[in-house]
Design a protein around this nucleic acid. Structure first.
Lengths: 355, 355
DNA sequence: TTTCTTGTTGAGACCGGTCTCAATTGGAAA
DNA sequence: TTTCCAATTGAGACCGGTCTCAACAAGAAA
């Protein structure tokens, strides 16, 4: 247990081989755990390695094997509880399978997302899990796929991208919750999303790049139409990208003459902001306003009243995406698999009948 | 713009060089952005690279340069809002400085943490940001430092580890909040933490491995002692590691004959559980129980009543750790820097005088 | 004893970059 | 015109592993 001086140049297989009195190839066999080596020699190499405190250089290993043992993950924002939970699912499965995770958040920005993919490609990740900011703009992902990199899509799909995809049944969830609100007598129902459009106003679902959100809005509008509610496009608010933006949008909305009697928040961050603003304005949930939020965030169950949510299996979303990807990395062939995980409405006390 | 067939073997500098009619060395100079090359040749190489869709192999580059352009981050649990926010701070700064982040969560488990460090060392990360599970057990970190790897400690320090450290003034915060509770007349004050001890009971602060938590408990006990409250060690509850554990501990605690009149939750996850349980048991905050939680989690401001918290600059904690590390990676020498970020008590309505 | 396996080992190429060093070239200085 | 210097380029070693292939030894089969 002598104190080894901090040497900048690390111990290599060649060093170990020399010390053990065997060839580099043999030492490499022992250290790399491949090929066949006699017990005697193995012991000698292991001893030498321990004595020199040998540490394998994964980089060099990756160089020849072509596998880096890492998967690249690109999400919108790790700070968002939705993504942090999904990433937890991903990392758990990845680790189990012997992979490490390089995490990059795109901030839902296409340029950043492209840069992220380029970086990950350069780093030679073995596979990619991406939550594309815009389903319609996935040329960079096509490129990755073309270069032979397995890709799994998380929470958002793409029609043009024929790869493993794990999403929630967003449209269905939106339909259900909208139907429920309409049953309760609501007709002035607002839908709030962080997704933005060029004009910062909602015109058509085609402007919504984020797939999960587009499907939700489609479901929302479809059910409204079905129920005879027209012009509901005007009730869709986009661009709730930051706390400040959301605060302004919600405040304006709730103070307008024609204020909604119900709000559907597309994620828990927006939902939280709605909750805060309704208090500030002295409104009452559910008396003055019914609220439902996507994502069963922790806060939704402890407010007064607790908030009705669309529970998504977020951890599983991530874990499943990772599972599918790992299977590909282990050679699984076959057509792309689309997994749609079920959501569930947890009806709490934030919705009420309107007369 | 012809469709390139997905070739498994990627385009290398040699390929580009060949196509451009120059030597490998020259092509490498252009592609790698080093050395000096004539404009004419540069243009030719760039054109060839574009035509072949050349993508640099960072692995190979790292091989020779010895820099991988990645930093390894080991945190307890990315799902915990505290860490996800800190990681956001880290990734923002890292990206700005041109580094990517490999994320591993230890689950606050020492064995997992050791494995994580080993993995990251093998992957030849350029630097390390770690939130050590146990301050007393950092031999693996010593090893990393010994091998010349810059290390920054996040949220938890270590006396034996002389490296850049960014923590919050936990002790001070705990002292303040304890003092405040005592001023309000509380004497039965419970402290709840996820940290566990071998016996699952609290005896001495020396059993608490997590530095930030130990400092808080020290502050808590010191102020209690100062105020003449003795035997407060019995009011420290450890092992609130999971939702289930916490639920059981809190339920038992709040149902005991000698139930506390105030609870200090060491993180927002525990705080949330306390809040849930108090409701289930039909107690009232703040009438029957005062509650204060570390970490200004989003939910704390929307409950009824809103919960008093110790606000920590979590994003900055991560960002600063990353900043210090990046400085080291850029050659900054000099002694280890210990940064202590200020906390702040946000007093809301969950505490009340007891008579 | 001879031949054939089978197991074990070593030599050296290779992965895709970087980097050193020597050679070549062209223009400025003498 | 000759000499010198700086700019540009190419050849090839190197990073630290993996992996192919050939050599060799020992035991089994003939």
């Amino acid at each position: 247990m002598d104190q080894t001086t901090a040497r900048s140049t690390s111990v290599t297989v060649a060093d170990v081989a020399h010390k053990a009195g065997v060839s580099k190839a043999t030492a490499a066999r022992v250290l790399g755990g491949y090929g066949t080596v006699s017990d005697r020699v193995r012991a000698a190499v292991v001893a030498a390695a321990r004595e020199l405190d040998y540490r394998p250089n994964e980089l060099a290993r990756s160089m020849t094997t072509g596998r880096s043992g890492t998967i690249g993950v690109v999400v919108g924002d790790i700070e968002n509880p939705f993504f942090s939970l999904a990433v937890r699912g991903i990392t758990d499965v990845a680790r189990q399978a012997g992979f490490t995770v390089i995490l990059i958040n795109s901030g839902e920005d296409l340029v950043a997302e492209r840069a992220a993919i380029r970086t990950l490609l350069a780093k030679r990740v073995d596979g990619l899990i991406v939550s594309p900011a815009k389903e319609t703009d996935v040329e960079h992902l096509h490129e990755a796929v073309r270069s032979g990199l397995p890709l799994a899509l998380l929470d958002r799909g793409s029609d043009t991208l024929d790869v493993d995809t794990v999403i929630a049944d967003d449209r269905h969830a939106a339909e259900n919750i909208t139907r429920r609100l309409i049953t309760l007598g609501h007709s002035r129902i607002a839908y709030l999303t962080a997704c933005d459009t060029p004009s910062h106003r909602f015109r058509t679902v085609r402007d919504i790049g984020t797939g999960s959100v587009r499907r939700r809005i489609e479901g929302f509008l479809a059910v409204c139409r079905e129920a005879g509610l027209t012009g509901m496009e005007d009730w869709v608010h986009v661009g709730a990208v930051s706390s400040e933006h959301t605060h302004r949008i919600v405040t304006e909305m709730l103070q307008s003459a024609q204020r909604p009697t119900a709000v559907i928040a597309s994620d828990s961050i927006i939902g939280l902001e709605v909750f805060k603003v309704h208090r500030q304005l002295g409104l009452s949930i559910p008396d003055d306003l019914s609220l439902v939020s996507f994502h069963d965030a922790d806060w939704t169950s402890v407010t007064t009243p607790p908030v009705t949510v669309v529970r998504q299996p977020v951890y599983d979303l991530g874990a499943t995406a990772a599972k599918l990807l790992v299977e590909r990395l282990n050679g699984e062939a076959g057509p792309a698999r689309k997994v749609i995980l079920k959501t569930e409405i947890l009806e709490r006390a934030s919705m009420r009948e309107v007369f």
